[in-house]
Design a protein around this nucleic acid. Structure first.
Lengths: 147, 147
DNA sequence: TTAATTCCTATTGACTTGGTATGAAAAACA
DNA sequence: TGTTTTTCATACCAAGTCAATAGGAATTAA
């Protein structure tokens, strides 16, 4: 499965904001430095998350971003959808065949696939990712194998 | 979700072969006429399915294609994978970020999504689609609503 | 030999996408 | 008021992808 870099960078930014905002805002430059993503690229991604009411922006000096809600109230469904309609939306084709077979395919396959993806991502929150990240950090970066 | 036209046309072709081969082969021209897909385009798709051992080809005059196995032994996983590695493969990015957050994301989200897609498509066979198609055909093309 | 067919490999044109550039608007602060 | 810091909006470009077409070679039946 292919996910656009915009989606990945967007989610990473949100987790970064979630983890590093201590009753304050997080700036694009901060995220850029911590996550090694071009600031100019982030300036293009974050406004999309703002329009989707996932983050709130404060303009001007001392400005930056915060989450609009606690991380456990922000689902990955929202986030992914805000960044790229194609990932979790109905299956589409560049040139849709409108035949009975295409209809059968849609019913047996495509619609069930998207149905699952939607309900799955609706049940994963930003908190889940952040928690997992914390755990990985605590582990010293290296996953631990006990043989 | 975005599916390439190649995948859709490929599956449609297989169902067509499944339905219209009566102990005989099905030609590209036949499929093209029935399914309204350019013959030249099909000539590019079907060899891929042959290499994946899903169909068998007979060259020359009176040639054409047949399935290598009964339709209930051909999973949609095989088929989709033969036509486009990206759909059911591991989540990939054009420019993978290699951070702890990306790792957490992979564990909590991407890998579970692909895991599901794989196991789901492994349990849908060409027969399922063909059966569904037969049912739709019998219904006269129009879905029936009883109010 | 001829016609029917699959097979192979280019090519084209349109679209997508990752990433950059430029500068405007807003707010803090001195 | 002016300067700095920041978000915001828009345009742009180069590279890649993809659907579809094209031309012709190889194979086989009759």
């Amino acid at each position: 499965m292919k996910i656009s870099s915009k989606v990945e960078c967007g989610i990473i930014s949100l987790v970064d904001i979630c983890v590093y905002s201590n009753n304050s805002v997080v700036t694009v430059i901060n995220i850029s430095a911590r996550q090694h993503i071009s600031a100019k690229y982030l300036e293009q991604i974050l406004p999309q998350l703002r329009q989707a009411n996932i983050i709130r922006s404060v303009k001007g000096a001392k400005g930056g971003y915060t989450l609009t809600r606690p991380a456990e109230k922000i689902t990955l469904y929202e986030v992914i959808n805000a960044l790229d309609r194609n990932v979790l939306g109905e299956v589409t084709f560049d040139n849709k065949e409108d035949s009975l077979i295409a209809g059968a395919l849609s019913e047996c396959l495509w619609s069930k696939m998207t149905e699952y993806l939607q309900s799955f991502t609706e049940n994963v929150t930003l908190r889940d990712i952040a928690d997992r990240y914390d755990k990985l950090s605590a582990g010293g970066g290296e996953p631990m194998y006990y043989i």
